[in-house]
Design a protein around this nucleic acid. Structure first.
Length: 496
RNA sequence: GGCGGCAUGGCCAAGUGGCUAAGGCAACGGUCUGCAAAACCGUUAUUCCCCGGUUCGAAUCCGGGUGCCGCCUCCA
């Protein structure tokens, strides 16, 4: 069964057939580096990271390009505010972007070009457009004439007349049509500038993606991705530029992720209702954010809130607990052999689950990368593993250990496609504790001291004293857990 | 004004013509425990915003209504 992808261009799911049988060429619109990234940027990155991972997992040779916009009005503005160069600003936030994304386990694309590295290519492309009559120069600015491109509006499904009627922007002097957009901007004093046939200036925003995608992927490539807000004008303009210049289909499948909302409203810089990724990391582990982002389908809006993050946190904990338990029960056996049917119904039930879960996982992912459904399969398998262990009161046999190891292997294999569960449970829970201790400013030594004291009290069955200490710890947000192996403690999470 | 999307249990969220409407969180019951906590197991929607229609059959398709959101300006 082929992979099906919802294509914004056709407004429907289509069977995915790449240009070359085993190769997928994809281009993702990256960030404009002028500030720290927020959860919305994280969503886009994670969504396309999962698509990239899944296509590779299904055997495609994927070439992925994601750009950095490092010259732009907002970067210039920021640089002027700080009295520095726009390159300095871009550099700083690109570095911050990598920090945030590496923690989220977003795999770096094969190519990550920056706009300023492709000025000659952009100029060449603009010259082609002028040569073909699609663009014109006015006082050192070059504009794309949208009326000349008959397909203009095909991606965003709008007509030129409607757009002009509803336009909220003041008409810029010099433009032949208010919807014409800049390919090249004449620079004002103090702004970054490059020499060009039209004088000193800098590229417009849209042209960089046309130039860089062509450079790495050719005139026509398979998948073009980005946030829904890029559909118009950015992607519409990219299509106009590239198809006008080369007379070929630009991107074949247009994939757009939905927004991250806060209280039903789009998270955005202009509304000021955003959380940066690093703010989120102060309280939640990156993996929790990742799971949260994948619990909804990528095209739906997703509401960011403390409650939904707490849910995601519990979910990740649940999965790591399963892995921890299997490790304890079965050790680190790895076995790929097909296990025989047993007389034990519990054994067979888990065996069947392990065998069937992969197909279901694939079916879900094949259907327009339905990570929410795919995640359901992981939880299903997790529960099957727990149930099986729960049914064993004696020591597991070797066959049972093998079965559990296989189940855990499968769980991790699927989770890996989603970029989840790749750490050891110990590492996860340790990091969780460290993060919370730091966040709440709790002294670990003090906790350990009280715990030791309580262990003593329990030894002599001084329950009153033990409970007293437990209450005291609870006030410090520390929860005590008496396990058969000994007493453990953890920091209370926000959801408790 | 133009264009588009969404509405499923207490909450989040899959499912878009037909076996029992995934899964998560929460709640409750149980196992465990000195008591707890944690963990685990189990239970929890005869019903999918409302009204019509198509169909042997609809949460799923069509028409109308209500509510919410997004894009049309920089934006993942």
């Amino acid at each position: 069964m082929p992979i099906r992808i919802y294509n914004t261009l056709s407004s429907q799911k289509e069977s995915f057939v790449p240009l070359q049988a085993d190769r997928v060429l994809m281009y993702i619109c990256g960030i404009t580096a002028y500030d720290f990234c927020h959860v919305g940027h994280a969503r886009s990155a994670v969504v396309f990271d999962v698509i990239y991972r899944y296509l590779k997992y299904r055997g495609f040779d994927v070439v992925c390009v994601r750009n950095f916009t490092d010259v732009d009005d907002k970067i210039i503005k920021r640089a002027q505010e700080e009295g520095t160069e726009s390159q300095t600003i871009a550099e700083r936030y690109i570095e911050a972007f990598y920090e945030d994304m590496d923690k989220l386990d977003v795999i770096r694309p094969d190519y990550e070009p920056r706009a300023t590295e492709f000025i000659p290519e952009m100029i060449a492309l603009i010259e082609i457009l002028i040569g073909k009559g699609y663009a014109y120069e006015v006082d050192g600015n070059v504009y794309f004439a949208v009326e000349k491109f008959s397909d203009y509006g095909k991606l965003s499904k709008r007509k030129l007349d409607d757009m002009i009627a509803g336009a909220r922007v003041a008409v810029e002097v010099g433009k032949k049509n208010p919807m014409d957009f800049a390919l090249w901007k004449a620079s004002k004093p103090g702004e970054p500038a490059w020499p060009s046939p039209w004088g000193e200036g800098r590229p417009g925003w849209h042209i960089e993606c046309s130039a860089m995608s062509t450079k790495y992927l050719g005139n026509t490539f398979d998948i073009h991705g980005g946030g829904k807000d890029l559909i118009f004008p950015h992607h519409e303009n990219e299509i106009a530029q590239s198809e006008a210049a080369f007379g070929k289909i630009f991107a074949r499948y247009w994939v757009h992720n939905g927004f991250v909302n806060i209280n039903q409203e789009k998270m955005s810089k202009s509304l000021g209702n955003f959380f940066t990724i690093r703010e989120v990391y102060e309280r939640y582990q990156p993996e929790v954010l990742r799971l949260f982002l994948l619990t909804s389908h990528y095209r739906s809006p997703v509401d960011f809130s403390p409650e939904s993050m707490a849910e995601a946190e519990r979910g990740v904990e649940r999965l790591y607990h399963t892995i921890e338990q299997v490790n304890e029960f079965a050790g680190d056996l790895s076995s790929s052999e097909q296990l025989p049917t047993s007389k034990d119904p519990e054994f067979n039930s888990l065996r069947d689950k392990i065998n069937s879960v992969l197909t279901k996982f694939h079916d879900d992912m094949d259907d327009d990368f339905n990570t929410a459904a795919a995640l359901g399969q992981l939880f299903d398998l997790s529960r099957a593993l727990n149930r099986f262990q729960d049914s064993r009161s004696r020591k597991p046999t070797r066959e049972e250990k093998k079965l559990l190891a296989q189940g855990m292997h499968r769980l991790r294999e699927c989770a890996n496609v989603l970029g989840l569960l790749q750490r050891s449970p110990e590492e996860f829970f340790r990091d969780q504790r460290q993060m919370l201790l730091a966040k709440l400013g709790i002294d670990e030594e003090e906790v350990e001291g009280l715990i030791a004291e309580r262990v003593q009290a329990r030894k002599v069955k001084d329950w009153a004293r033990a409970d007293e200490i437990r209450d005291k710890l609870a006030e410090m947000s520390i929860i005590v857990e008496d396990k058969p192996e000994g007493t453990r403690w953890r920091v209370k999470t926000a959801s408790e």
